[in-house]
Design a protein around this nucleic acid. Structure first.
Lengths: 335, 335
DNA sequence: TTGAAAGCGCTAACAT
DNA sequence: ATGTTAGCGCTTTCAA
């Protein structure tokens, strides 16, 4: 015996109405006599009828599914965003197709195409950088797109972020106020606008505000991993830096670990600020002072924005800037 | 101007062939003359035609999409599984619809139903416990299901796990060999079979093997959070325990933190073993000895198993047990 | 308030 | 090797 599916047609027959009426009942169309509705509902229940969302999608051209392109779910930063996205999606009756891209330009494009082929109603994109190619795909697709936690220099699509420049400036300013004259800037790839433009700009502004000179030797580009952090410490200390701002918690943790191994006292001899305030910053000794980003909210707001775009609602702003904070913990001195 | 979609029909017309031929080309059917194929491919390229996966799904009754029910993506443990799942899914040309359930019985059922409504070809389920209700839904759905990292007492569906009982027994045995006579067992809800059955059983077996008496006062049920861990420490120390096995890293970290705050020396005065060997166990001081579970692989193998089930391939085994390990680090003594 | 009927874009026999 | 023709299960005018 095969999987004999029950269709809207079966329900219609059993309830002695037309399939149009069943459709109306299923979709909550008010133009149905209560008695009829009741009858149909009973049959639906009895037959255990479940509407086929694929057929529905084909007929209505809406899938109530959105595509989510993410570099790596197993990275806490993105996982937090994803959770916010899914919660709001669920709230608005959408499901998410989650696709990992590893931040790989080519994968991003191919995955975007399969999502579009699946007729998703919208796309949430997280990535380190927006290549021209992917931007091109976005613009010729007619499907609404929102960036979550990703910077797009020219704002063609929606996006939700914090003000990375201002946040970085704040962090650096704190370090400068504490008397540090050589403050290191340690980030991921500088070609990513979020690092090379936003954050670095904030760094420079803070420096000039405190009359400190910009020195390339204090800028480090690294991968986001614990190990890279520990390995970076030699060079960091050689640079003469007495403080560092790091754009990733795991990396910062590695640096802290390396510093301690070198017998450098944190925060007495070296101050450290990281960026994501994840659990990692809480469990290290000392705990690491960090910028705070509302990760969950960035995801949630991005999804909310996307629902508006999908409904062609009027939206005040396609670019949302959420507030950030700076939580002082054990890796910076109290003053 | 509206989103005027290009259909297989447009391509057929432009290429002077029937839509069937276009379909064959698109699906790589060998029964097409090379010249024809080339012509069709050119038109597809020129028109920028992209097959509509929804229509395809309706006609073929396959969506190349699988549903993934996960308690919480922002939990590292599950996120790692999810990454393994997605990678293998991608490898086999599937996409995943990711749905968070919070381990909530009711949400799990409702989410399962919407996934089935969307005609997913298969389901990967992660959860703390398999309720009778969800098991019922599984069995009457005809859609293949595989559990990843979840225990199902009666094995109706596929599943991929490690041998939690043996793993726990190993961990406890190590603690016993080190001379600990009062070894605490700290887990999540004991009604979850993975804790109350598998792991606790392993705990008991190890005890009896070392002639230690089972004492309920050493068993603690807790939530998986850092805070709960720190708060548990008073009771833990009052129990007289000199060692503990913990089923979650974050919880273990909280316990370690609490112990250190109480001036208890780890591992000299108290030994600790945790279960997931996540990054958290590496960044604490001391690093925490842990069981090692191949999280990514559990996800990957679960997805691989699901592909077999979806293809109705003969599968040797519906229940896969993956190897585990025990990595001794700083929270247990060297002997 | 309800029904009839025409698609939605594609696959999959069945012909040729 | 290619074309013809039914559907897949539902939404959505348009009539009644």
């Amino acid at each position: 015996m095969e999987k004999q599916t029950i269709t809207i047609y079966d329900v219609a027959r059993e309830a002695n109405v037309s399939m149009a009426t069943v459709s109306r009942v299923v979709n909550g169309n008010p133009n149905v006599k209560p008695a009829t509705r009741k009858k149909v509902l009973e049959v639906i229940d009895r037959l255990d009828y479940r509407p086929n969302a694929v057929a529905r999608g084909l007929a209505s051209k809406k899938t109530t599914t959105v595509g989510v392109i993410i570099p790596d779910v197993s990275n806490m930063f993105f996982a937090s965003l994803a959770r916010g996205i899914d919660d709001v999606a669920t709230m608005y009756k959408y499901n998410i197709i989650l696709a990992n891209s590893d931040g790989n330009d080519q994968k991003e494009v191919s995955v975007l195409n399969t999502l579009l082929a699946k007729q998703v109603d919208g796309i949430i994109f997280m990535g380190h950088r927006i290549t021209d190619e992917i931007r091109g795909e976005f613009s010729r697709s007619k499907t609404p797109v929102v960036l979550a936690g990703s910077i797009d220099p020219d704002q063609q699509v929606g996006s939700v972020n914090i003000d990375y420049e201002a946040a970085t400036k704040d962090a650096i300013s704190l370090l400068a106020r504490h008397g540090n004259e050589k403050i290191s800037f340690i980030s991921g790839a500088l070609i990513d606008p979020i690092n090379g433009k936003e954050r670095l700009e904030g760094y420079k502004k803070a420096l000039s505000e405190y009359n400190l000179t910009y020195n390339e030797g204090l800028i480090f580009e690294s991968n986001y991993s614990f190990k890279e952090g520990t390995q970076l410490v030699d060079r960091l200390l050689n640079s003469g830096a007495t403080a560092a701002f790091v754009t990733d918690d795991e990396l910062a943790l590695g640096i802290l670990d390396g510093l301690l191994d070198h017998g450098v006292k944190v925060p007495e001899e070296f101050e450290l600020i990281t960026s994501n305030n994840s659990l990692l910053t809480e469990v290290s000794r000392p705990k690491i002072t960090s910028l705070t980003q509302p990760l969950y909210d960035i995801g949630a707001v991005a999804m909310r924005l996307l629902t508006k775009l999908m409904n062609k609602e009027e939206t005040e702003e396609k670019t949302v800037i959420l507030p950030y904070g700076l939580e002082e913990k054990g890796s910076t001195r109290k003053q």
